[in-house]
Nucleic acid binder design. Structure first.
Length: 567
RNA sequence: UGGGGGAUCGUCUAGCGGUAGGACGCCGGCCUUUGGAGCCGGCUACCUAGGUUCGAUUCCUAGUCCCCCAGCCA
């Protein structure tokens, strides 16, 4: 079920649908449809379409949105995708209320519609070769020419079409074409192909058919059969609309849906086309359709993104007809917004630096109380073990601290989150490399969190983990899939060369607080001061594996970057 | 040198004849035991040129630029 969300801003499609219903068009019914072809996985662009179609149906009284598999091409489709698509639609939070259909269920009816067209002299069987058909079609600036088979009699067409169905012709030898206008300035109207022969096994109809309807024929009629009132699609179908209307009218369809087009979603620094996504998967440039770097719904899910964040994003970006490229930062904003409210906080050290509290009693372990979620008091508190040897983040110490660096440095103090104020009194370096191997600090026993006498202020609070209690874990950090524009190769080069080689970073020596030992795959956390992380599906209690969904905003990183690149 | 669409802050988007609003982002401040979150303030836009009008981002005209269409894909 869709969770109620703040009513979205109006857009031209919503306005139109609202006006239609108010005017009593289609008897006041509103029926939309989400019609994926089961030849790949759904991505966030589909989410925009779903938000529109299901969203509209949900908010209009009596509205309904069908899920329809547009499976008219047996060579690219399979049931794996059908299942995955259903899972994704449900995961995103949409419900088709039992109205799930397949274009392939309409093959018999579609055949009958084609016969109607033939009888009316509006369709004919063409025996030109594919190459000839292309030649006869003309170009953008030159009109096409009539096929010599265009004037076949109705009876001959009927016979030929029946023989096509009967399997008497090999692939590519005959097609059924609409008889419209070979001179039309709109190429889609130059006798478009309605049926093509394909001796292929369809994943649902098997070998029942050896010819299949094209999109331009099947789609409008499927809409009409289902009583779709508003058939919403993307801009590239705009000049198919006259054909859509022609098919519905000439085939004497029982109902006339209205096609409306909107601009598809584009996102910066990622790829959204099915062709490119498939290429990444097939060439094993990513781990699979659910690789967390991909904008597929499966990928976003595995990365830890919530359905709610995706829906909020889709509502926010709006619906219009102008081409647009939405910044990834906007998606990240909605991800953080949702995760901030729901994620339990936890401490984890990604790049450990050992520190020894010289004056803390050896063997003593204190249980410190930590807040689970400051945004949600009902989340309660938990205990975290504290002891003499800890790990802190390497980035939280600098031997020579730059300006505005508030964290630990020789002689400086910081607070350990939920613990004590400590002071750095010594740095041990590797005699060979000079690298810092450990820090020596002292703690101030009067400054334990919550202690009444605690008055002192320090500029920074850092996270930590008790070395002997922490659990080792592996982290996967993600960067954009694509390189920034400036770093991309020329457009004529292989696009995969613009892939970011650093899109995945693996950190294997990380330490998380003990409460995470039993964290379930799929559960989400905020690692304090670092970001939102999700337990990967491949994680296990002895081999914890987390994916970073999105980092927290990092004010220091911004300052540090500005210091590096002075104007 | 065909046809179909589209142009508003850096990015999305609202506006439907009364002189541009929201969000992201960015900058500054407050607050803070997350340099998180939150709060406050600031930033920048109507593609161009004519016309109509008391008044145009909105209407008209002419340009410019961008996107889509020549699959027996969808």
């Amino acid at each position: 079920m869709t969770t109620p969300e703040p009513s979205s801003a109006s857009n031209f499609i919503r306005d139109l649908v609202v006006a239609d219903q108010a005017a009593g068009k289609h008897g006041g019914r509103v029926v939309t449809r989400f019609p994926p072809e089961p030849n790949g996985y759904l991505h966030i662009g589909h989410a925009k379409s779903m938000a529109l179609n299901f969203g509209l149906a949900n908010e209009m009284s009596g509205g309904i949105c069908h899920l329809r598999f547009d499976d008219t091409n047996p060579t690219t489709e399979n049931p794996e995708y059908v299942q995955a698509i259903q899972d994704d639609v449900r995961w995103l939070g949409f419900d088709w209320h039992g109205k799930m259909f397949y274009a392939s269920d309409y093959f018999e009816q579609l055949y009958a519609f084609a016969v109607v067209l033939i009888r009316k002299g509006k369709a004919y069987v063409d025996s030109l070769t594919p190459d000839q058909i292309r030649e006869y079609r003309g170009t953008l600036t030159e009109p096409g020419r009539d096929s010599p088979y265009r004037t076949r009699s109705v009876d001959e067409n009927l016979t030929l079409f029946a023989r096509m169905r009967a399997g008497e012709f090999p692939d590519g030898t005959q097609v059924l074409r609409a008889k419209i206008d070979m001179g039309s300035p709109n190429i889609n109207l130059r006798d478009p192909i309605l049926y093509r022969i394909r001796h292929a096994i369809h994943y649902r109809t098997g070998s029942t058919w050896c010819m299949y309807p094209s999109y331009d024929f099947a789609h409008p009629l499927s809409d009409a059969i289902e009583g779709i009132t508003h058939s919403i699609c993307t801009l590239e179908f705009e000049d198919h609309r006259p054909l859509y209307d022609w098919v519905v009218a000439e085939a004497d369809a029982p109902h006339r849906p209205q096609q409306i087009e909107f601009a598809r979603l584009n996102l910066t620094s990622t790829v959204m086309s099915k062709r490119k996504l498939l290429e990444l998967v097939e060439k094993k440039l990513v781990a699979g359709w659910d690789d967390p770097r991909l904008p597929t719904l499966k990928g976003l899910r595995r990365r830890g993104v919530t359905p709610k964040a995706i829906r909020a994003f889709c509502e926010h970006i709006g619906v219009a007809k102008r081409d647009a490229i939405v910044e990834m930062q906007l998606l990240e904003h909605f991800i953080r917004e949702d995760l901030n409210k729901r994620s339990p906080r936890v401490m984890a050290v990604l790049q450990p630096l050992k520190i020894v509290l010289d004056n803390y009693p050896d063997g003593l372990v204190e249980e410190l109380e930590a807040v689970n979620n400051p945004e949600d008091p009902s989340a309660g508190t938990r205990k975290i073990p504290f002891s003499r040897i800890l790990y802190i983040e390497q980035d939280d110490f600098k031997e020579a601290p730059p300006k505005q660096f508030y964290r630990l440095a020789p002689g400086r103090e910081v607070r350990l989150r939920y613990g004590y104020i400590i002071k750095c009194v010594g740095v041990t370096n590797d005699p060979q490399t000079g690298a810092i191997t450990e820090l020596h600090c002292t703690y101030d026993p009067d400054t334990r969190s919550g202690a009444t006498q605690e008055q002192r202020k320090v500029k920074a609070t850092i996270h930590w983990v008790s070395a002997s209690h922490a659990v080792q874990a592996t982290m996967r950090l993600y960067q954009p899939l694509l390189l920034p524009d400036q770093a991309k190769p020329a457009a004529d080069q292989d696009w995969t060369r613009s892939l970011n080689p650093q899109s995945l970073e693996l950190l294997t020596n990380c330490w998380v607080e003990p409460s995470l030992r039993t964290a379930e795959p799929g559960s989400r956390f905020q690692f304090e001061r670092q970001g939102y992380f999700c337990v990967d599906s491949d994680s296990s209690p002895d081999a914890l594996l987390f994916n970073r969904t999105v980092p927290l905003k990092d004010a220091w990183a911004k300052i540090a970057k500005a210091q590096q690149t002075p104007i």
